[in-house]
């Protein structure tokens, strides 16, 4: 009986401490120290929230750089991957379809090596990044669709360079391009 009461009481104690006070404390610090990040790293243009810097978007438009394939079509409710195994025939089919599609869409040589992140879907379905190589392969198509002259095309290449994220602290991760930020930049090219 004594043990029973103690277990209820200590459970109550830790529920208040770790379930209420701790998250509130962290929220307080987060909202004071990093308000933008704590609220989703949102990006506002012309007084409209156009997305989060961290969350990928679907860009199946000829004037934009494409994101990776996504098992949830970039709908975050809920996030997730395809969970296809490597011996799944559906995956094999999807990959060869995506390969063909990427080559036709960007009018590439049929022997071009496509970076694998453009052929495989991400785990979250919301991956905001692609490799630099994958961005470069799309430049001609976008320049053509936007009727860019040579000067503008140079700016396009420049914007890829600017938006290339280097390994964090020189150590963690690989070079990558945030597609959403890049496309925001592309819209600004006059």
């Amino acid at each position: 009986m004594k043990t029973l009461i103690i277990s209820i009481k200590i459970f109550l104690f830790f529920t208040i401490l770790t379930g209420i006070l701790y998250p509130l404390f962290i929220t307080g610090i987060a909202q004071i120290a990093f308000p933008e990040k704590a609220n989703g790293s949102l990006i506002v243009t012309n007084n409209k929230v156009v997305g989060s810097e961290l969350i990928g978007q679907d860009f199946d438009s000829i004037i934009y750089f494409s994101s990776r394939p996504s098992a949830v079509a970039y709908n975050p409710l809920p996030s997730g991957g395809s969970n296809y195994g490597m011996t799944n025939a559906k995956l094999k089919e999807l990959v060869s379809e995506r390969k063909k599609q990427f080559i036709n869409y960007n009018q590439l040589d049929s022997i071009t090596v496509i970076p694998s992140e453009m052929l495989f879907a991400s785990g979250s379905g919301l991956d905001p990044h692609i490799s630099v190589q994958a961005a470069l392969l799309q430049v001609n198509r976008i320049a053509k669709a936007r009727n860019f002259n040579n000067n503008q095309k140079q700016k396009l290449l420049q914007s890829i360079k600017i938006n290339t994220e280097k390994p964090e602290y020189f150590l963690f991760g690989q070079e990558r391009v945030n597609v959403f930020l890049l496309n925001l930049e592309v819209d600004k090219i006059k």
Partner: peptide, 9 residues
Amino acid sequence: LSHMEGKEV
């Protein structure tokens, strides 16, 4: 191909 299915860039 490197296996990027289900992995983040």
